[in-house]
């Protein structure tokens, strides 16, 4: 299923894009030689891909991030190695895009090259337990805004519905219907449903394309 060169993760603010991106990069690295993860978040100065720098580096994944990412320098900076993502065709790239339409705006620079190459997935990460995307219409509205701002059509949906550390298997099972409805309304495939790895035994066999996650470190 994962046969593309570039994977972009976009979606609404706080939907869990970064967490999914890091896990996706780690999964891709098991199959491919040269994998990079790029942090294009120009919205949120916290909870960045760079927080997982040690783990990514240990796995042999290149981290492309602004030198200001995760620092006290609270400016919307893009990494200078941005063009490597489109120029180096041997590279498998996971691109972590900032939240909402404001975040997707950063794609403008690379969208034309990605469109021309036609070897990418642009996945929208959704979480029905977030306050501004509880149902299909509100979620669709955000996805359309993201698509318009990024200048790149979506190709799939990632259901990352969760309630943080207290998520139960039932919470995730209850989200599938919502995710399928969003995908159907958007005319896109439901690429995967994620779940924290501890929930995998309770969910395996019950959910199509289940993608187990390990969580990035969280505050106290």
């Amino acid at each position: 299923m994962m046969d593309k060169r570039v994977y972009l993760l976009c979606g609404h603010y706080g939907s869990g894009k970064t967490n999914v991106a890091v896990n996706l990069a780690l999964a891709l690295k098991k199959e491919r030689k040269k994998v990079a993860i790029a942090d294009l978040d120009i919205v949120n100065p916290y909870f960045r891909t760079k927080d997982s720098a040690a783990e990514l580096s240990a796995a042999g994944i290149t981290l492309i991030a602004s030198e200001y990412a995760g620092s006290n320098v609270d400016i919307p900076a893009l990494p200078q190695q941005l063009y490597q993502l489109t120029d180096d065709k041997d590279l498998t790239a996971v691109i972590d895009v900032g939240g909402d339409d404001r975040g997707a705006l950063a794609l403008g620079r690379i969208a034309p090259a990605l469109k021309e190459e036609q070897n990418y997935e642009m996945w929208a990460v959704i979480n029905r337990y977030r306050p501004l995307t509880p149902d299909v219409p509100s979620t669709l509205e955000v996805l359309r805004e993201v698509e318009a701002a990024g200048g790149l059509p979506l190709t799939g949906i990632v259901n990352n519905s969760n309630l943080g550390a207290v998520t139960t298997p039932e919470d995730i099972l209850a989200s599938v219907e919502y995710a399928e409805a969003v995908a159907k309304a958007a005319g896109l495939p439901l690429a995967m449903t994620t779940a924290e790895a501890r929930l995998e035994p309770a969910l395996s066999g019950k959910i199509e394309n289940l993608f187990p996650l390990t969580l990035q470190k969280r505050p106290v």
């Binding site: 706080g14 979480n127 337990y129 977030r130 306050p131 509880p134 969760n162 309630l163 943080g164 207290v166 998520t167 139960t168 039932e170 919470d171 209850a174």
Partner: peptide, 16 residues
């Protein structure tokens, strides 16, 4: 748990 939403503290202030 499904009657709960996952919120940032800032969002919780705004919604409340």
């Amino acid at each position: 748990m499904a009657d709960k939403v996952l919120m940032k503290g800032n969002e919780a202030i705004a919604e409340a």
